[in-house]
């Protein structure tokens, strides 16, 4: 009987050990591969956090990623540029990125691209913080932001594999040079090809947003951290191909908070030039490369105007 029980206990312990060993070894391998990628979005994120020493850094979602033309900004403002924007990532992600970047380097200028629905209640904005889990070990400063995803995240991250959840394929591709052939990456800027051919859309549901005040507080912290580090911050809403009946609550709030902190808020959301030029867009939310060039030129003009006072 006792022998039988010991054998059962041995089986349970060895299964748990097997899991721990698997988790450790696979996690170690993934960590090695993750930080040795040569291309792709994960590589760009790592580069932005650990290596970029540019004077100007762009933060935001895919719209940040595709809208800010590096050559125009570098030449006209005479500064170096890097773009850490990423598809489907919102203000919690941008703030976590800012915290990690500021640990190592203080840029002169930061552009934060804001969306019309930036502050709406949407758990997805926090769930997507999982793409920053690989950095948590070396950047505990993002712990407080990650906790907004769930209070159990820190415990879940005790598993080395969980840290790289859903990233295996991206890591494997990133370790090759494949993505260099299908994505043009210029200092984090990803130009889009193609034009939008459908008629101008209308948005009627802008003033009825359910606002997430955690996101508002994160946005305020973003501004405060920039001010503390004496960084020139420009908060920008880049163009999109939808006519708004009225400005969204998110944009109204973003604008008023920026004013409170004396930070310039530049709104191209309803710029007539873009609303009348579908050829500048890839889709209703994203400019194509030509559109990005036109928009960046206009933005530089605005920045210069502000700098000249």
């Amino acid at each position: 009987m006792i022998k039988n029980n010991i054998s059962k206990l041995f089986k349970v312990i060895s299964f748990i050990l097997l899991l721990i060993i698997f988790d450790f070894l696979i996690g170690l391998l993934l960590e090695f591969l993750y930080f040795n990628q040569k291309s792709g979005s994960l590589y760009r994120t790592t580069y932005g956090i650990e290596e970029a020493r540019s004077d100007l850094i762009v933060f935001g979602s895919s719209r940040a990623n595709h809208h800010y033309h590096p050559d125009t900004l570098e030449q006209r403002l005479n500064i170096s540029y890097y773009n850490v924007g990423r598809d489907g990532r919102h203000i919690p992600y941008s703030y976590a990125m800012l915290k990690m970047v500021l640990e190592r380097h203080t840029p002169r200028i930061i552009i934060l691209d804001i969306r019309g629905s930036e502050f709406i209640v949407d758990q997805d904005s926090f769930d997507r913080l999982s793409s920053l889990f690989p950095y948590y070990k070396n950047h505990p400063e993002i712990g407080s932001i990650i906790e907004h995803k769930s209070r159990f995240e820190k415990f879940k991250m005790l598993s080395r594999i969980y840290t790289y959840n859903s990233l295996v394929l991206n890591i494997l591709i990133g370790c090759t040079e494949f993505s260099k052939y299908w994505v043009t990456n210029h200092k984090g800027f990803l130009p889009l090809e193609g034009t939008w051919e459908k008629p101008l859309g209308f948005s009627y549901e802008t003033d009825n947003q359910n606002i997430d005040y955690i996101k508002i507080s994160i946005y305020e912290d973003f501004i405060k951290d920039c001010i503390k580090k004496k960084i020139k911050l420009y908060i920008v809403r880049s163009p999109f191909y939808v006519r708004e009946v009225s400005r969204s609550s998110s944009i109204e709030l973003a604008d008023s908070i920026a004013k409170e902190f004396n930070v310039p808020f530049i709104d191209f959301g309803q710029d007539s030039l873009f609303l009348s030029s579908p050829s500048l867009f890839k889709d209703i939310l994203h400019l194509n490369e030509t559109g990005a060039g036109v928009f960046t030129s206009l933005l530089v003009k605005e920045i210069k105007k502000i700098e000249e006072g």
Binding site: L19, F22, I26, I161, V168
Partner: peptide
Amino acid sequence: YALLIITILLIGALD
């Protein structure tokens, strides 16, 4: 079963 658990951690949609 260990592989099933590892796969859940690796590619499960855990949100």
